[in-house]
Design a binder for these strands. Structure first.
Lengths: 247, 247
DNA sequence: CGCTGTTTTGACTTCCCTCAAGCATGGTGG
DNA sequence: CCACCATGCTTGAGGGAAGTCAAAACAGCG
């Protein structure tokens, strides 16, 4: 159940069998199956529980009064929404699925008691939110400084590498359930321009899109095109010194 | 010493005299006076301590390989840099002053023992980082969806309201130590276009800039122009129920 | 097989960028 | 006290990246 989540946390520090079981149990208690394009957190809501993406993709987004919509981040399997958000009165953004998705809804108390009894887990969750913040910062750089071509290349790098970190790629390809409208709303460019930019990326041999499958023949080249530097994802086991010595 | 910081945290929950004294003491231990345009955190560094802005302004920023620079956020008096960053191996961005500034450098241990002994403080710091994240999200929306005019209006609203929250405005005006280059790097537009956009804002009577002083004659109008909604700053004392009952 | 949602393409417009030069400031030293 | 320079602001002209509108081609699915 919590496989992807655990895999991700272990990019920071190895967890004990106990910790993994505790996580898995907490996550398996309440799960929900959602259809595509279904919101499960609404701006204005009082945050109730902490959601974990078990399978499928979701987006965080905000909508302006006049209807313009900006995607703020993609939530992939293993991603957690709003670990500490529950101390706020209301959500300042919404979260909705892209594809069909399965999510776990963990009550705040469970998370608190989990981190109280397992300090290493607590650190791993800290790390997790630090990485989320770093991703948001990188999006700001992406939107502010890169042109459409670089921006798109950068996004594909981020998504591919994040998926790879939880084992959802095979060699050079991954599933990509996004439409060009989604891509436009994430990158702050019009749908038409998304299309032309994708053409350019394909023309340059940097990506191959066939149906919902995305292939990246040469990740290094794509990274270069997007001025992408994976540092900000902090995937190099910064919490190594905390590793459990159990197998 | 920690006046602005305390004022900010009390936008979430009232603190006890003890808590305030503890904060003030922690912050007064090591302070540093910095000149303008001086970096005090460098990308790639191992994060050592937690910095608090006591006076002056600073920016978080990232620089691309080819020199393009994006400001990711402004740090105002009372703002804290990287409460939990110390669990990471290296910083993924830099922080530098804008004007002359005074900062406190608090060791990680001090913060940990502080939050261990004062749970309310711990909540207040959570809230603080949640607000920081919310600001980053709003920047993504700003860069992705708003045009230069709206974008600039939105930024001025954010800065004014954040300054007001710590008591650094008088009525309709505040100090603004930023150059047009800074504004451009923050908003992802060229310096020339910053200038023209400021002209437009002035022409519309929305802002008045004289030297380093910024006056906003009609904040409501500016908010409307920037499609600004202050919700995301969570300044309405969400932690009211935790308030100390001391005076 | 037709419907709906997505992708592709073309023509035209607009916003913002670059380059380049001309002005204000204000601080420093002769 | 004024000349000087540095830094930041302002303005103009022309170009390019991305937006809008609109229609056609192409899925995928009941």
């Amino acid at each position: 159940m919590a496989t992807f989540f655990i895999r991700k946390l272990e990019r920071f520090t190895k967890l004990s069998g106990d910790e993994k079981r505790a996580l898995d149990e907490a996550v398996s208690r309440t799960t929900r199956q959602l259809g595509p394009r279904e919101d499960f957190v609404q701006e204005g809501d009082k945050p109730r529980h902490i959601s974990l993406i078990i399978e499928g993709w979701a987006t965080r987004y905000k909508v302006l009064e006049d209807g313009r919509r900006q995607i703020i981040g993609f939530l992939l399997p293993g991603d957690l929404c709003d670990v500490r958000m529950f101390i706020l009165k209301q959500m300042d953004h919404s979260i909705g699925t892209v594809s069909r998705a399965k999510i776990a809804e963990v009550p705040a108390d469970t998370v608190i008691s989990l981190t109280d009894t397992h300090p290493r887990l607590s650190r791993a969750l800290w790390w997790n939110s630090l990485v989320e913040e770093a991703i948001q910062r990188e999006w700001i750089v992406n939107l502010g400084q890169r042109d459409a071509f670089e921006r798109m290349a950068h996004l594909f790098c981020e998504l591919f590498i994040r998926l790879r970190a939880v084992g959802l790629t095979n060699d050079t390809s991954c599933q990509l359930p996004l439409t060009q409208v989604d891509l436009g709303e994430a990158m702050g460019i019009s749908t038409v321009h998304v299309n032309r930019t994708l053409m350019d990326l394909r023309g340059a041999g940097l990506i191959v899109l066939k149906g919902k499958t995305c292939t990246i023949p040469d990740l290094d080249a794509l990274q270069e095109a997007g001025l992408f530097n994976a540092n900000y994802l902090h995937l190099d086991r910064d919490g190594r010194h905390l590793d459990t010595n159990e197998p």
